[in-house]
Write a protein that binds this DNA or RNA. Structure first.
Length: 324
DNA sequence: CCTTCGTTCCGCCATG
DNA sequence: CACATGGCGGAACGAA
């Protein structure tokens, strides 16, 4: 059984702590057996969790046998991370364990140096501070979570749910993840719709001569681009562009571009009150109808439903975990 | 839901 | 000859 160990440091945010406990703890395989064994460990006897104290049954040594270590946020991200915790996390990573942070848990992870040279995210309000303190970490504040293979990080509290479900999907497939989401009363759309929430595909498939073009595409996604435009930018023929794209990105140019547009649209639906039609127009869909239809086929629900589902869940999160 | 029209994208092949 | 490019045409797809 896959071993999950959650590291509870003093000041641990209860919401972040319970997210992995609940999600992984509820995940079931097809035959009904638990998909994970979940343990919470701590440095000392008791953990100060703010409004309450927590007694854990395991010490940090539990981390050594973990397949995945989860690092929840702590109430003061600026606080020094205990050396024992740093050492334990470094050992775990050295031993091949997967490590994921939730919310400002990214500060703890960054303190180990493991994030150096990697992309990561954290709670939006703390992103600038993280980037300032750890310049070697490539901080992306605009995404729900980042998957760098064995190093993952998620944004604000609610995004921790997405991250955990993402891991369930990676480990046991979409069906198990969907069932877990259902049991946890998560809106389905976030796990049903594929990887639209993953900010960056895992390690950029090297040899990306198209990399600059991709960057340019992302920046100009709002403009009405045609294949010819893109080919011109890449200074190659449309034929070659199509071929290279398939080889390097594994997708066709326009299909990929639309995915970027939809990702941006999701973000706008989450973060703003702009009307659906406006959002569609702003990310580069000429016709509102087309926008709605494409959104639906890729994400699984209509833009309106998506916004509602997201709002209801972040409200809950904001209520339970007003972080920093 | 259907229909029309333009675009995309890929197999095939010539060319560098 | 191995390899990459790009033009051509048509089937499939997307936009309206």
């Amino acid at each position: 059984v896959h071993e999950i160990v959650v590291l509870a440091l003093d000041g641990v945010v209860a919401f972040d702590l319970s997210t992995p406990v609940e999600v992984f703890g509820r995940a079931r395989l097809f035959d009904g057996r638990p998909a994970y064994r979940v343990r919470v460990c701590s440095l000392g006897e008791e953990v100060d969790a703010g409004p309450f104290r927590l007694r854990t049954a395991w010490g940090v040594e539990a981390i050594q046998s973990a397949d995945t270590v989860i690092v929840p946020g702590v109430s003061d991200p600026r606080a020094d991370v205990p050396a024992a915790a740093v050492a334990a996390l470094q050992d775990a990573a050295g031993g091949g364990a997967r490590i994921a942070s939730i919310c400002v848990g990214a500060f703890v992870l960054a303190a180990t140096g493991l994030l150096d040279g990697h992309r990561a995210t954290t709670h939006w309000a703390a992103a600038a501070e993280l980037a300032r303190r750890y310049p070697a970490v490539d901080v992306d504040p605009d995404v729900l979570f980042v998957d760098e293979g064995d190093l993952l990080s998620s944004a604000g509290a609610a995004a921790g749910l997405d991250l955990c479900l993402h891991l369930v999907r990676r480990d046991h497939g979409a069906a198990v993840a969907a069932e877990t989401a259902r049991v946890s009363v998560m809106p389905l759309e976030r796990d049903g719709g594929q990887s639209q929430f993953i900010a960056h595909e895992p390690p950029a498939p090297a040899g990306g001569s198209l990399e600059p073009v991709l960057q340019w595409l992302i920046e100009n996604a709002a403009a009405p681009l045609t294949l010819t435009d893109i080919a011109a930018q890449a200074s190659m023929s449309t034929r070659s562009l199509n071929r290279q794209f398939r080889e390097q990105v594994g997708d066709t140019p326009l299909h990929w571009l639309n995915r970027q547009r939809l990702r941006r649209a999701q973000w706008l639906l989450e973060a703003t009150d702009r009307p659906v039609e406006e959002v569609g127009a702003q990310v580069g869909f000429i016709s509102p109808t087309t926008f709605r239809e494409r959104f639906r086929t890729l994400v699984g629900v209509s833009p309106q439903t998506y916004r509602r589902a997201f709002r209801s869940r972040t409200d809950t999160a904001a209520m339970l975990a007003p972080i920093t």
